[in-house]
Structures are given as C-alpha cells and as structure tokens.
C-alpha cells in the first residue's frame, strides 16, 4: 500500500517536472474558474449555465484524468507518451466523466436516497406532463426528511423529489401548485441547474455559485405555469409563504 503511494508520489513529481503538463493543468484550472465566473456575470439561459457548470466540473477533473492516463500509459508501455497521443485519450475521458457525472451520478445519488411515489402525485404529474406534450413524465420520489422541500433533477430520466416534511406541511392544492412549479422547471430545462448548483454550493462560498443558480425570471415562469393550470395563485403563494416561514 505504502509502496504504491510512494510510486504515485514519484510519478507525480516527474509529471510536474514537465513544463507542458504544468501549463495544461494550470490552463484547465484557469478555464474552470473562468467558466464559473462567466456563468455568474453573463446573462446566459438556464440550459447554458448548467452546461457551463458541468464543463467546470469536467475541467476540474481534467488534471486528475491527465495524470492517471500519463501514468497508465507509461506503466503499460502503450503509448510512448507523445503529448498529442495522451490528450487524445484524456479529452474524451474527461468529457465522458463530466457528462456521466451530470447525467448519471448526480441524479442517481438523489434517487438512491429516495423512494418512488406510485400514487396520486405520480398520476397527477403524468396527466399534466401529457397535457404539456412531454414525451415522458418525470418520476416522483419521496425523500425521507422532515424538512419541507421540493426539487427536480435532470439527466436521462428527469425526476421530481418531495420530502415527507413537505407532504405533511402543505395542503393538497398547495402540493399540486409546487409539483406544477417543478414540472414547469423540467419543461424549461432549468431543472438541470438545481442539483449541480446544490453540489457546487457544498464546495464553494455562496456568493460564487448563487448568481449562476436559478434566476427570478425562471422562477417566475414556473410560477406562471402553476397559476395558469390552477387558475389562481392563492395555493402557490400560500405554499411559498409556508416554506419561507
């Protein structure tokens, strides 16, 4: 075990003695910072901001994949480490990891700690997704938490998550308003933002991530849909007031 750690440290020292490697690693980290800052200051759409944040994660992964690939290549003697050849492996692997992270890992982590809801909320979402012309209705999951919360995730199979705390705090009509709000986020594509934002918020200080998160305009659109379906904004406003208390 310790022998292997020594080996990796030696390889790391060698890796960083090469000026080109250092430049590539520094460039990827600089681009990662640039992406998160640009998503903060430029007025991109929700979909673009979520792509930028996933690219940010991919660029953070790049040095790790680059180092691991270089090490493996040397060990296996597969590539006589030409830089271009190494990058031909590294770039697709990093992109695949970034995509897998955003489309599979994050949604899977959320699904893993929740139970599918096969009752009235699933039927409710199924009906309204059909009316919206969505090809597949998002799955509804119940999260075992007493905190009243609702959120949605994207990936290959979009899903809406509601906590037990939410179910016991809101009335039926208020729950429907919240579910319609989340459904509208999924239709608009802004749902992808929430999980990645929550993840980055656990690592970065709030002021860096917050402006890249859901904008008021996107929230307003989701509210407008719920109000349009229910023909009143009373239930949505009451639900919001309860959740803000």
């Amino acid at each position: 075990m310790w022998g292997m750690a020594d080996h990796v440290i030696d390889a790391g020292t060698l890796f960083f003695q090469d000026g080109t490697n250092v430049t590539l690693v520094a460039a990827s980290l600089a681009f990662a910072v640039l992406l998160i800052l640009s998503s903060r200051y430029l007025g991109f759409s929700a979909r673009t901001r979520s792509i930028l944040m996933h690219a940010h994660v991919a660029l953070l992964l790049f040095p790790l994949v680059f180092f691991a690939t270089t090490l493996t290549c040397k060990q296996a003697g597969l590539c006589e480490v030409g830089l271009t050849q190494t990058l031909l492996y590294v770039i697709p692997i990093t992109l695949a990891l970034g995509l897998a992270f955003g489309l599979l890992v994050v949604p899977m982590l959320h699904r893993w700690r929740a139970q599918p809801e096969a009752g009235r909320w699933q039927r409710f979402i199924h009906r309204h997704a059909g009316e919206l012309g969505m090809r597949k209705a998002p799955d509804v999951f119940i999260v075992d938490s007493g905190r009243p919360e609702a959120y949605s995730t994207g990936g290959l199979r979009p899903a809406i998550f509601i906590t037990v705390g939410m179910s016991e705090t809101l009335s039926e009509r208020q729950m429907q308003a919240v579910l319609l709000h989340e459904l509208a986020h999924i239709r608009e594509g802004s749902y992808v933002l929430k999980p990645i934002t929550r993840l980055l918020q656990s690592v970065y200080p709030e002021p860096i991530v917050a402006p890249a998160a859901m904008t008021q305009e996107e929230e307003r659109k989701a509210d407008a849909y719920a109000t349009w379906v229910q023909k009143t904004n009373v239930h949505l406003n009451r639900a919001k007031r309860k959740l803000a208390e």
């Binding site: 007493g146 905190r147 009243p148 705390g165 016991e168 705090t169 309860k242 959740l243 208390e245």
Partner: peptide, 9 residues
C-alpha cells in the same frame, strides 16, 4: 408549522 417540522427533523 414549518418551524415545528424543521425542529422535529
């Protein structure tokens, strides 16, 4: 009621 739910959690 939300405060009660969060506190119980």
């Amino acid at each position: 009621q939300t405060s009660v739910a969060v506190t119980l959690d």
